[in-house]
Structure formats: C-alpha cells, structure tokens
C-alpha cells in the first residue's frame, strides 16, 4: 500500500467522507467495467459497483493493509457480482474449447489487421460479452489493472496455478468466439442460460 493510500484511508477513518470520493474516482471505472463484464447488464453493473463502494466504506476498518487497496476493492466487487449472478440465477453458457488451428489463428490475425481501431474495440467488447463471467473477470483484471497472477488469485480466491490455467482457457474461448464473429457464415450463438 502506498503512503498516499495510507493517508487517504486514515482520513476516511477519521470521518473525512470527502476523502472517500477521491478513492471512488480512482477505482470506479475498473469496478464498473468488472461488474459490467461479469453481469452483462448496465443497470445491474451500476448498482453492484455502487454497493461495492458502500461496502468498502463500511468495512474499511477491516482492511489491514497487507495487500494492495485495489486488490481488496476488486475482491469485494467480484464477490458482489457473484452474489448477484447467484441470486438472479443468470449464467452465460460456457464456450466449448475446441482445438484451434494455426490457420484459424492466422485468419483471425489478418482479419483484425484489416479492422480500424474503433471497430476492433467494438468487436472485443461484443466477444467479451459472450464469455462466461469468470473468464471475462480474469481477462479484465489481467489486462487492465495488470495484476500479477498472485494478486488475481487473492481477488478471485483460487490458487495461482488455477488462475494461470483459467486465464489461458479464457484466451482460447475468446479466440474461438472471435473466429465465429469474423466468419459470419460460421457464426455461433452463445445465448444466456
């Protein structure tokens, strides 16, 4: 934990609620992105992201500072999303991991080269939206916050080696979905469960 974060936490504990808004501003985008990618619904994601910060505020006394503040906040957000998914019994069907050949990977690579940045960004969003919640959470945490596997394992509460395996599977699933998007004639439909 940085000195700056330590001072911020101390200020919040001393009753300076304004200091908490700095913390919210710092982490709100990633908490919202994580929630949106797990829940696949904007309204639910906003509600869960807000609840996350309220829980964080209420439980700040329990934060011992052994890990990064961000790790703790994302763990609260991740658990809140899982609770919502469990409550709504809404799950995304898993993607079957078929073998993906070099030819297909070459095809995906070339097709991506032909897309402009904006199109590519939109395509990624659509593909991630088709991933199961645990896969999209792992990719979001790994690529946006650049967390190490150990830090991700603390957030999602699974072993580091399992995170590594799941992360690779998530990449493979994304490649399979991507291929189906880039080849409209083979487009697969991954409905919600």
């Amino acid at each position: 934990m940085t000195t700056n974060e330590h001072q911020l936490i101390e200020s919040i504990k001393n009753g300076e609620t304004k200091a908490f808004s700095i913390l919210v501003d710092r982490y709100k985008d990633l908490v919202y992105t994580l929630s949106l990618r797990m829940l696949k619904n904007k309204e639910e994601a906003e509600e869960v992201a807000q609840d996350t910060f309220i829980k964080v505020y209420k439980s700040l006394d329990k934060f011992k500072g052994d890990s990064k503040l961000s790790t703790w906040i994302y763990r609260v957000a991740y658990n809140a999303c899982l609770d919502t998914i469990k409550r709504n019994k809404k799950r995304i069907n898993d993607v079957a991991i078929d073998e993906i050949s070099f030819n297909k990977l070459d095809y995906i690579d070339n097709a991506l080269e032909n897309l402009i940045k904006q199109e590519r960004s939109q395509l990624i969003k659509e593909c991630i939206d088709k991933l199961p919640e645990d896969s999209s959470a792992l990719l979001t945490l790994f690529y946006f916050e650049e967390f190490s596997l150990e830090e991700i394992s603390k957030i999602v509460n699974i072993e580091t080696n399992t995170v590594k395996v799941k992360l690779f599977r998530a990449r493979k699933k994304l490649a399979i979905i991507l291929e189906s998007y880039l080849q409209p004639q083979n487009r697969l439909t991954y409905g919600t469960g």
């Binding site: 919210v24 985008d29 919202y32 906003e46 992201a49 910060f53 991506l112 990624i124 690529y143 946006f144």
Partner: peptide, 19 residues
C-alpha cells in the same frame, strides 16, 4: 487484441450517488 480494448466509463454522477 486486448491492447485495443479500453475501460468502460462509470455512468455520469456515479461518485455523487455513492457519496
């Protein structure tokens, strides 16, 4: 591919609602 991805922006007035 993920280099082209970017964070979603939290809705307008998010911080205010939390506060």
């Amino acid at each position: 591919l993920m280099e082209s991805d970017n964070l979603e922006k939290a809705p307008e007035g998010f911080t205010h609602s939390v506060m």
